[in-house]
Write a protein that binds this DNA or RNA. Structure first.
Lengths: 134, 134
DNA sequence: TGCCTTATTGACATTGATTCTCATAATCAA
DNA sequence: TTGATTATGAGAATCAATGTCAATAAGGCA
């Protein structure tokens, strides 16, 4: 664990959600000037491979990252507005989801000899504001 | 409906799955020489906005597209290998999924005043071959 | 049918996120 | 420390995707 890595991890674990690499880079310049954009990308990929952060592909042309907090209270998925790109986290239906996911994982792991490590659920649509325009 | 648009739609509806824009462009050159890459991108975005094709973000640096076939038999989601990128379609648990999705949509649409139009579920992990290497 | 307005196309340039390169600097075990 | 290994930062390079624009096609209407 080096200084830049700690800075990035600390920033992600305390900041608001869904930050792009550029946003993280810019935000860190204030507190840790001199940190390079390459390092930000490298570290984010490293943390994602380690399962410490989640890399989100939300369709706005850049990857976004969020700290993966443990346990039921941290577990969530996303509503994504296809018009303006706003992201809403929701935490409902944890138990029902878990039930389906467990069942699915068990069956699919066997059938396809696939080792499932993670899952994503997302809902696409129009947010309150964008609904009015269409 | 113009000729290039029909060519792209026809190609997508009959081809195998998960094609990138470049792959579609290259494949079409044989049958419809002269078609432009911009037109491929424009048409794919158009078809995606119309809900005729699905735009997939699978983490390999490019968007992939698949024809959205109607009904229970066409409905599926994906297992994605985070090492080699292979994509497996699965069609299991349609009813269980539908039940959860309906419940979720109803609650979230109200709570967040969000108009849900579509949903994705994906499982990430290691495929049979890549499992052995790690 | 012919005319006119509007939308689409294809070639090319441009953008912009991400990765690569490489010389320098930091890390860590012995 | 010391030497080998790994990480860093600056800039260049890559490459998917979009923008530009003149030429072409489509479709409505008299």
């Amino acid at each position: 664990m080096t200084a830049p890595r700690e800075a990035i991890l600390e920033f992600l674990s305390t900041s608001s959600k869904h930050m792009s690499a550029k946003e993280i880079y810019t935000s860190l310049q204030k507190k840790y000037p001199g940190i390079g954009l390459s390092t930000v990308y490298r570290t984010l990929n490293l943390l994602a491979r380690m399962g410490i952060v989640t890399k989100l592909l939300l369709g706005d042309g850049q990857s976004r990252y969020e700290f993966k907090s443990k346990g039921k209270s941290g577990h969530h998925h996303h509503l994504i507005c296809t018009n303006c790109g706003i992201i809403i986290d929701y935490r409902e239906f944890f138990e029902e989801e878990l039930q389906l996911v467990r069942k699915t994982e068990e069956k699919l792991a066997k059938k396809y000899k696939f080792m499932i490590q993670d899952h994503n659920i997302e809902y696409l649509g129009l947010c309150e504001k964008c609904k009015l325009k269409y």
